[in-house]
Design a protein around this nucleic acid. Sequence first.
DNA 1: GTGACGTATAAGTCTGACTTTTTGTTCCCG
DNA 2: CGGGAACAAAAAGTCAGACTTATACGTCAC
Lengths: 235, 235
Amino acid sequence: MSTPGRGLHGRVLESLGPAITAGEYPPGSVLRTDELAQRFEVSRSVMREAVRVLESMHLVESRRRVGVTVRPANEWNVYDPQVIRWRLAGADRPRQLRSLTVLRCAVEPVAAGLAAKHATAEQCAELTECALGMVANSRGHKLEGYLVHDVAFHRIVLNASGNEMFARLGDVVAEVLAGRTHHQVMFEDPDPAAVTLHVQVAEAIRGGDAVRAEELTREIVVGALQELDVLSPEA
Amino acid sequence: MSTPGRGLHGRVLESLGPAITAGEYPPGSVLRTDELAQRFEVSRSVMREAVRVLESMHLVESRRRVGVTVRPANEWNVYDPQVIRWRLAGADRPRQLRSLTVLRCAVEPVAAGLAAKHATAEQCAELTECALGMVANSRGHKLEGYLVHDVAFHRIVLNASGNEMFARLGDVVAEVLAGRTHHQVMFEDPDPAAVTLHVQVAEAIRGGDAVRAEELTREIVVGALQELDVLSPEA
DNA sequence: GTGACGTATAAGTCTGACTTTTTGTTCCCG
DNA sequence: CGGGAACAAAAAGTCAGACTTATACGTCAC
């Protein structure tokens, strides 16, 4: 699924990144490269490369004579897939899951509408195939199989929209759906209504009915948001 | 506006990054760290740090015995502000501008709706102030002054939505608006209708009218999209 | 043709010395 | 006693060179 710490600097990142996003080092905290290098038992070169990556994610800022300072959370590149993964693995997963789902509410309906206009015949076929796969796995606690088709479904819609910004949210949606399945209380079978909606969305896109695809997708994703609110109470 | 190549590795990035996003090195191209270090007249350590950053943006992939290979564009982290800036500076600015504006069409109306519910009194005040600033600069070729208030307006709405994913798109919107003002043919004064809409959106948010704020914002951003289509013909 | 083996290659890692920038202190003068 | 200039220390930044490791590719035997 993800990239397991490639190279030494990758392993350092896999440890330091989640620590920062988890708020283990409050904003303004100062880290020194040499100290970190010692702590992780790597050379300074490796540590510097790791810091550079964190810097490119706007998680930290490196300044001479002062050190590596942790930036406030509102400056982080929260669209970076790695940052998203780190945050979803952390303590405030619920909040993270919610803000991502709200993003889905905004994006996916529009993407579905565009998909209805731009989807190729092949994409339509894959879409209905995924929908059928969801139906097939909707009963009998086959959550993993359901998840696979669900992820594929939304990924295809986002790709079929023809907009690269939408397409690149496929990974985000995948993370959200996986997080919901694995870390929420989801022992039951998925909501039958949601399954039906997916089938209908596939039909609408196939039929080129943009407004219907948009509206049905909105139902799906708003439903997901409500489901989230039920499980973790939050204003 | 942005961060001008801080440190040697930053200057290398400022040169290599745009070259890659511009498609100067087609996907699959192989670069060697040593050669790059020579070309840019920096040490390997510096070059390696630069490559690490490019790697974290998914622009390239570094593999042993192979070299640094350029990844296909559909794998790039296109939400990275730096990548966005590089691409907007490149040749396919029109396409980039369009896909970003489509993203705005999806996000900003929803954000405005949420802002109507969550905006603080102070944010409402700032919002109307910005709207007035736009009105004041809407005539007499005061495009720069208009731009400043326009950017501030949309940034406040996104922040006031209370969703961090929306809030972080403030920079993207700023880049889009700046790009439109500076690099499109925009010698005329801004569309009066758009100005009016901004004022009305500020009113709606102040009044807590979510659906109205959403709908008016949709008019603004769809208008921006149409304006884009007129200037650069594209299917 | 297929498999195992060896080799060349380019990234990866480490070390140590040196440079540069910047902060904070000290000290002198007004 | 206050302010500014000179100074010193600290941390990142840069560089060069040696060494290690993984791996693609060619070779050779079967």
